[in-house]
Structures are given as structure tokens and as C-alpha cells.
Design a protein around this nucleic acid. Structure first.
Lengths: 402, 402
DNA sequence: CTATTTCGTCATGGCGCTTAACAAATTAGT
DNA sequence: ACTAATTTGTTAAGCGCCATGACGAAATAG
């Protein structure tokens, strides 16, 4: 089995996979896939000029990718210009599929995404998973996965891997859920509970959500700060198209950034953390609702109806978010801040105060704040797409199961 | 099997330098240089096993590097083990040299560093540059550069490039000083004022300082947050051995992270920015000294003598730093925080309160705080080394001027 | 003194891209 | 309508670069 590709930061010292001819081939296969995927149907000649190889070289690469079922020949292009028209190539709609799954507090969801990014199958089960033990939950999830895989296979796809988004911290092995407070799970190895046929990746839902934002929108910048609020306040930092994970995998923890250093005590040991002002519990309480009974979605409803108490609570949360984000923006200088997850639906009431803080504190050069269009779909889609990206990143690694 | 998510660089779309055989060769030359540089004198066989190529391949690479004057053959290794002893290879001490320069508020400095990292020549001129126009300052700097280059050449070195550290913001062209408040320079193109023979790079002193920290210490982690205080409070974020610059090059601006959102107004438009508590001016004032007359170095002296007013001012600054750093550490999860520049000498009085804030607010999992050993030398050394790194990163790019 | 181990080099070969030439398919010009 | 020009995709030859395998050289172990 070939080792995963590693892109060369020349600065990092010696120990890396050798730069051999096979590696070069694999990287060029990946470049062809990425180019065709990103730039829509393209002729071999167009691909060649895009990636800087000759037409001859691209021809052999494309042949190999077509034989593997990863690319498809759509037929001759409509000739608009002088010269022989090219033959349009597209990423295959009947090759490998990425299976994404989400373990939410109130639902389970699974979907299959093809190489083109289209969702080809889905399955959802509603019902709370709060404090349910892992085994039955994962058993239900497995059943949904089977359904979705069956549907995908009936459409000529084959599953290339399974990625699971969970509302909690995941170990660096990408299999073990270290801590999921809302599920009350601790050190659960999902690899042992899920069918072993599929290559498995587990990650935090906020991470998958931010990757979805990165991959699924044409105009999303390569440097941004993604803020969501499912459990606590999950941030994610994307730099140059890469998710920043931190040494222990904790990067992006916006919830415990100090907002008012002498503010109310927080469970983390600090005082005045963002979570004390913009966390689900704090906002519900400030809005006169009951945490644990009411949930975030109630807020959007009440606010839309004009409930002034709720609106004030959201304004204050926006202010606190703005203060915390000012620090983050100063530190990272991203192209944009993206509000995702539950925050997306609350954006109309959060944004004004949030943006005001950000602008006042940034001397005019504030960075853009955007609202995710994906909203709560982000983590699931991000998970499925992560499998697809892995195929695009190393097409040679997937078997020729066409 | 899907590749781990964090390796994602191939994800960034098509347009990159083509993966051709020459590119492969160049990358392998770089890998040999990096390995020999990092692991001390090494035989060809040792290099081969380190980077995963065959001895034969490494032999041809080494030959080429020796012909270019970048590597040297030291002679047979002392045979400790069975078998024919290898021939020790070392980075050349008589090849290219990196010329580093620093434009400080109170001094100019230039040095030459060889590929081994040894400083082979230096020149300094003391005297304030506050509000002096750029032309005479740069003329003096050019004279120092000439001196240093002459000295280096007399030792068999040749200058591979010039890197200049400035106390201000530098445009992305790496030539133009956009704004240097303490010098009162605005939009100065240093490329036009310096001799054109040498390849020029200009960057912020905090950036070079953090790179020095990364490159010059054996035990420095690859992910850290560097904090210095020359102009304002310059931070720098290093992730995976790469300096994070941000979209506009502003990344690392720690000075305007909000510490107390309702605190004193700041020139940036915000309130309670870190600079209001831990900036040079604020600390001097809190210590009963006069900003503009006294400077940072006075603080260390007074504090060492036991001046309680100064010590309290530094404790408070440490607290503010701790609060701001808590946010940054939460967001980035670095391996360590490094205090550099002027902060290094003040560390004894800053650290206790700084670490206390960090620990209390991080629920036990606080990240390590270290003090730079480089101190004020950081920017100059970082500049010179940046030229050296450029040679190591692409040995084929330097002419065979041996 | 011989067997063994390791190093560096050489000749051979395979792999992957480039170069150059060509047939095919279209547009532009007369 | 017919030719010239242009662009595409393929093919064969060539070259660069690394791998393989064999060899002599230089050390240790017995």
C-alpha cells in the first residue's frame, strides 16, 4: 500500500518520504484530478497547460485515471474557437463515493457523496442520543450506513471510506472519541464498533464543518476562521486551505478565550470566558429560557417573532463574540470570519453587535464576516467530502474497483 | 485508505509548479543539504538511509553539491563499527553566506552567516535613528554591508543575498516599508536605496526574530507563539515550522488583542488593548518613568535593583500578557509560548504573573512558556539565516560561484 | 590471515516526462 | 469550395533521474 502523499514544505528537515519517480507520478495524477474537479469539464490540452505538463504526459495520466474509473470522457467539446475541439473530461459520477456520517445530540445522519460533490444518497434518524451508551447508537448508525451504501452501490458507486463527525474531542488516531460531554461518552473507540470494511476517519464536527465551508463554496477564502456553536463554541482555523489542528488537536477552542478577565467563573478554571457570554447555556438563560429544556433553535424562533428579551440576549452574545474574534483576527489576519452551525441561523441578531465590536476595535481594517450557507449540514457534508478529497489527493491509492 | 486530513496541501487547486524530473532533482538536492545541515557530519550512506534514496543516487547528488561548493568532504570517519568507514560530509564553511541587516531604532547592525550557521563577520553602528530620513540611514547601512561582505569574502565566502529586519510593517513585495512608526518612515522602497547586486528581502523584525527562534535552537518546537516587544507588541505564529503571515501580512499582531473590553481607549480605535497594559509606553508610565526618555532596558535595571514600583508595573504587564496569551493559546494550541526580544530580559519579573494567568485559565493543560536565549540578537540572526535557509531550500538556484 | 560488514562507485535498466512529428477536426480567408 | 492556419490527441524517440546489482576498498571479528 502506498504511503500518503506529503506535500513538501522544504523548510521542514530531512525525514520525509523520498522524492521518487512513483511519487512524482502520484502527485501528477492528483493534480490532474484536482484540476478537472475544480475547473469543470476540461480537455487534455487545457489540463496540460493548467498544470504545466505536456499534452503527451497528461494523456497518459488521463488514460490511467479513466481506466481506474476516476475520470470520464464526456465526448467532443462544442467548438467555439479555431482548431480541433478537445474531448471534455470530467470527474466520474460512477466511481468511488465518500460516506459521511454524523452523530448529533438529537439525530444521526449518513450520506454518500460522489467525486463530483453531488449527494447521491442520505438517511437520517431523529431522536435524542443524550446520555445513551455508545453501542446502540453506533449500531443504529451502522444500519444507516448500510442503507446508504446499498443505495450508492445501486447507482454504480462504491464506498471509498467512512468519515464520522462527532460532537466532541477526538484523539489523534482519528478513531477514538476522547470526550463528548453532551453524549456523556469517554474514550470510545469507534473503530471497534463500526464495520471494518470501510476505511474510517473520525473527527470533531466543528472541524468537518469548517472543511465543508472550505470545499463547498466557490468563493470561500483559503484563510478563514470558522465559528460554530454546537457544544460550547467550536472554532476552527483554516490557513492556506489547511485545517490547523494544534499540537494536541485542541486548536480552535474559542469558547474559553477571556472576554472579561474578571467576569463570572467558568468551569475551565478561568473567569469571563466567551462561553459565559455566548455559550448555549448562557444565552438561553439570559433570554429567560431554560437550558436543558429549550435548545438553540428556540432562540431563532423567538427572535424572529420579535421577542425583545431574546434579541437583547443575542445582541450581548454578539458583542462578546465580537470581542473574542477581535483578538483572533488580530492574531491570524484571516480573509474572513465565517459563522456556521447554529450561529448561522442566529446571525441576523448576532451580526450587528458583533460587527460593530470588530470594526471599532480594528481601526477600519476589520475583516469580513460571513454567514455559512451550509448551516447545520456542514459537518455531515464535510465528513463525506473529506473522503472524496482523500481520493482526489491520491488517486493512485484507491484500488481499481471500477 | 484516506490520507489524514491535516496533510491536505494537495487540496489547494491546480496552479503550482509542475512536478517534473528537474523539480524532483532539486527537491532531493535540498533534502540532502537539509539532512547534512541538521544531523551534523554524515556519510553518503547515512544520508541515503535518512532520506530514503539509494546510495548511488545520493552519490550523484552529493557530487553535484560539492562541485557547487555547498558541501565539503571532511575525510574518512572514525571507524567505530565494523565495515568500511564512510567519508564525512559537512555543509561548506566557504560557500555562500547570508547577509543579515537590522535597522533598529537605536542602532544599525549587519552580519554574515555561513551555511553552517556560524557568524563570520559583523558590524554595528550605535546612535538613534528616530525620525531620521531613510536615505542617510540606509546609506550608513550600505556601508556596513560593504564592510561585512568584504570581511566575508576575505574568508572565502560569497554573499548569497541580503535580508533586512525593520521595526515596522513591510509590504508583501518584501521590499517596501509601509509604516515604521518609531522611525517615522512611510512607504519607503528599500530596494531602490540599497545596492542592487544582492538579492534583497525585507521583513518585520518580529518575524525574523521568531524564525531565528525556530532555526537556531535545537529544542524549539515546530508550533509556537513568539512574543516580542520592540514596537508595540509583536507576536509571530509559527505552525509546523512555517511562519504564518496572514492575508495582509498582519498576522501575529498581539498588541491590539482586547484584554479588558471596557479599558482605556487605544489609538487603534478599540479599548483595553494589550498594548494599554503591556506596551512599552504603558509599562514605563506605570513604573513611574518617562516614555520617550527612558527605554525598556532601564526597566530591567531598576527591577534588578529591587525597585518595587517597576516590579509591580511588570507584574501587571505579565498579567495582561497572560490574559491575551490565554486567548491565543486556546485558539492555536501551540507547543510553547516563547518570550523574545526585549521581553526576554524582563522575563524574571513578567513570568510569575503571566504563567499564573495562563495556568488558572487553562484548567491544568497550560502550554509551556519559555524565554528566548537569543534576546535582542534574534532579528539580525533570523535575517541572515533566512538567506541561508533559502540556499538550503533550493541549492540548485544559487549559481556555481565557488 | 580470512570471513564479514559496510562504504562508495559503476554499469545497466526502468520509469516518466519532453520533444518532435503527424493525423484529425475545426475555423478563417479567398 | 478549397486551401491555409490552428488546435487537439497520439505516437515514437530521447533524455534525465533513480533503482538494482555487482564490484573493489577499507574497516572489524574471529
Amino acid at each position: 500500500m502506498p504511503a500518503p502523499l506529503h506535500e513538501a514544505h522544504p523548510s521542514s528537515p530531512g525525514r520525509r518520504l523520498p522524492d521518487t519517480q512513483q511519487g512524482m507520478r502520484r502527485r501528477n495524477l492528483a493534480r490532474v484530478m484536482h484540476t478537472v474537479n475544480a475547473e469543470g469539464p476540461l480537455s487534455r490540452a487545457a489540463v496540460a497547460s493548467q498544470i504545466g505538463l505536456t499534452r503527451a504526459a497528461v494523456s497518459t495520466l488521463v488514460d490511467e485515471l479513466i481506466r481506474s474509473g476516476l475520470l470520464e470522457e464526456l465526448g467532443p467539446e462544442r467548438p467555439g474557437r479555431v482548431g480541433r475541439p478537445g474531448s471534455a473530461l470530467a470527474v466520474s459520477g460512477r466511481g468511488p463515493a465518500g460516506i459521511g456520517a454524523e452523530i448529533g445530540v438529537d439525530h444521526l445522519a449518513v450520506c454518500a457523496v460522489d467525486l463530483r460533490g453531488a449527494v447521491r444518497a442520505r438517511a437520517v434518524r431523529h431522536g435524542t442520543n443524550r446520555r445513551r451508551p455508545p453501542q446502540p447508537v453506533v449500531a443504529e448508525l451502522s444500519a444507516l450506513v448500510e442503507q446508504v451504501v446499498a443505495k450508492a452501490e445501486s447507482e454504480g458507486l462504491w464506498p471509498a471510506g467512512l468519515a464520522v463527525a462527532v460532537p466532541g474531542l477526538v484523539a489523534r488516531d482519528a478513531r477514538t472519541v476522547v470526550r463528548a460531554p453532551n453524549l456523556d461518552w469517554h474514550d470510545i473507540d469507534l473503530g471497534a464498533l463500526l464495520p471494518a470494511e470501510l476505511a474510517l476517519t473520525v473527527d470533531n464536527e466543528a472541524n468537518f464543518g469548517s472543511l465543508a465551508e472550505l470545499w463547498l463554496r466557490d468563493d470561500t477564502p483559503l484563510d478563514f476562521l470558522h465559528v460554530s456553536a454546537e457544544i460550547g463554541i467550536g472554532g476552527a482555523v483554516v490557513v492556506d486551505g489547511c485545517l490547523l489542528r494544534g499540537t494536541r488537536g485542541f486548536a480552535g477552542e474559542l469558547g474559553h478565550v477571556p472576554v472579561r478577565p474578571e467576569g463570572p467563573a467558568c468551569a475551565c478554571g478561568g473567569r469571563g470566558c466567551l462561553e459565559q457570554y455566548a455559550g448555549e447555556e448562557a444565552v438561553l438563560r439570559a433570554a429567560g429560557l431554560t437550558p436543558g429544556v429549550d435548545r438553540v433553535d428556540v432562540l431563532a424562533g423567538r427572535a424572529a417573532q420579535g421577542d425583545e428579551e431574546v434579541r437583547r440576549a443575542l445582541r450581548d452574545a454578539g458583542t462578546a463574540l465580537g470581542i473574542a474574534l477581535t483578538g483572533a483576527v488580530n492574531l491570524l489576519d484571516p480573509q474572513a470570519v465565517v459563522l456556521g452551525g447554529a450561529l448561522a441561523s442566529l446571525a441576523p441578531w448576532l451580526l450587528p453587535s458583533l460587527e460593530r465590536e470588530l470594526e471599532q476595535r480594528s481601526a477600519g481594517r476589520a475583516c469580513a464576516v460571513r454567514v455559512s450557507r451550509l448551516g447545520p449540514e456542514g459537518p455531515l457534508l464535510g465528513a463525506a467530502h473529506s473522503v472524496v478529497r482523500a481520493v482526489l489527493d491520491d488517486p493512485a491509492a484507491v484500488g481499481t474497483r471500477a
